[in-house]
Design a protein around this nucleic acid. Sequence first.
DNA 1: TATCCTTACGGAATTCGTAAGCATG
DNA 2: CATGCTTACGAATTCCGTAAGGATA
Lengths: 311, 311
Amino acid sequence: MNFQQLRSVREAVRRGFNLTEVAHALHTSQPGVSRQIRELEDELGVELFVRAGKRLTGLTPPGDQLLPIVERLLCDVDNLRNAAQDYASQDSGTLSIAATHSQARYALPSAVKDFRALFPRVTLSLHQGSPQQVAAMLLAGEADIGIATEALTQYEQLTTLPCYRWTHSVVVPPNHPLLDGAPLTLERLSRFPIVTYDAGYTGRTHIDEAFAQQAIHPQIVLTAMDADVIKTYAELELGVGIVASIAFDEERDRNLRAIDAGHLFAVNLTRLAFRKGHFLRGYVYSFIETFAPSLTRAVVEQAQQSPDENA
Amino acid sequence: MNFQQLRSVREAVRRGFNLTEVAHALHTSQPGVSRQIRELEDELGVELFVRAGKRLTGLTPPGDQLLPIVERLLCDVDNLRNAAQDYASQDSGTLSIAATHSQARYALPSAVKDFRALFPRVTLSLHQGSPQQVAAMLLAGEADIGIATEALTQYEQLTTLPCYRWTHSVVVPPNHPLLDGAPLTLERLSRFPIVTYDAGYTGRTHIDEAFAQQAIHPQIVLTAMDADVIKTYAELELGVGIVASIAFDEERDRNLRAIDAGHLFAVNLTRLAFRKGHFLRGYVYSFIETFAPSLTRAVVEQAQQSPDENA
DNA sequence: TATCCTTACGGAATTCGTAAGCATG
DNA sequence: CATGCTTACGAATTCCGTAAGGATA
């Protein structure tokens, strides 16, 4: 048994059982991969993959049970490397962050700035994607930490920690009727076409829930993955924008006015996540604490050890 | 990085940093081991071992931190093999049990008998030792499950589950004054010399506690690791024996009489233990349930997953 | 001086990629 | 017939044990 065999198996599952693709991913030849898998199966005495003729099509029951062990094993290989590097080169290395647009654009910049000053020799790589993509990157070991408001708690294999709470705001052009000073209600809001986030992004769930609860069916004329797009169309008077309050900046958004909507939609909780069992280098803890001061190293380490909590 | 390197490191720690011994344990040459370790250190970029001149004397801080990861990694290698075998040869394999004398001699036989009938093709290996040795065998991966009354809960890396409760009995020759029918008390007991278990064995802790609580200092004239020795000397009238009730058998021990001492000493709880993260083959669950019917597969699997419980 | 680790060297086994073969949709 | 897995083979590399060297208690 060796690591290459295990990597071949893991990659085969990830790449949909196409060994040619696996070979590319692992920078080796296709017959090589084929052999690695076959040899592992021989050694273990079980077929891990279902074969339709010569083609692999899925995992057998034993394969299904062994895969998590293989994953954990390879994860530990990374952990070993990371932990060693943490000593070998204390303050240099890579920090890979996966985040949604909202976080990358509005929440992270200040933490990133401070972190770069503290750890100039750490290469930061920031990957933007949907909450699902953020989770996928964490699970694949491609990112150390992920930050998003939605979806992260859904994954068995991720540990999540609360970072901060925030609410939505309504953004409208300066001459808009909603700026008449009367209290903002869902009912009033629903009289206007609405521009907001795509389903599954940045607290959209809470927006939908609020309307549904009052049996109001708002006319949503445009959805986008990020606040910048939403604000752009709110300026064009396509509709009333609903964005995260954090995404409105008086200085920059001079063509818009914000109305707090914290009382209309449930409070959102942005979470930080990492893969269970994934080793975090020393500076990763520093970054986390810079981003969310309540998440001290002790807090994060404890969350890592008691995998059942979802505080 | 490869498994042999990791095994060399693990074994070096286990064998007190003597690479010559490690080489024997791993069935290879001493320079080989030396090289494995050096190469791993080179690859990781950290020294794992403290070297005094040419001699290894201990772990460096990074070594200390990496060791648990190495252990888990190698444990998963075993898990992979075991899980595979569970499919490859469902009902054949090996079940290794570590137990104290009391358990091996009095509690296990019936479970072993039933298990052998159910799984004739499984090779049973039963290792007897002190509670500490039982724990050590589990930690070293040499035994699948361990059974003992003492000490097992002390180990961070072991998961333990309660099997059954039992109390002590006093055993004396047929003509002994304690058989006069008057209630047995610690005070009366302490008037006679006592023969019982060694410290750290089979509920000895509770015996000491009971006497200490009443500030009685019994005269313990002989201690032994097992009830058979104790009973032998009780027969020879060296002193009054205190043994686990389960160890007294009216049929066999015709030269002795037992007096229940359940009210004198705290109730003992015999526990079953296994290493956290250690894969258990299907028939292991069967054995456990045969031994302690309350420990169904579901119960055991749950204990495996929530490592913080010590119910 | 005995123990124990390192370095040096050479043979053996393993590994891996290329090329050819074959099944499937 | 294009895609995708397997088998075959040979070269290169890696691996590992023996033997010799050096440091320490």
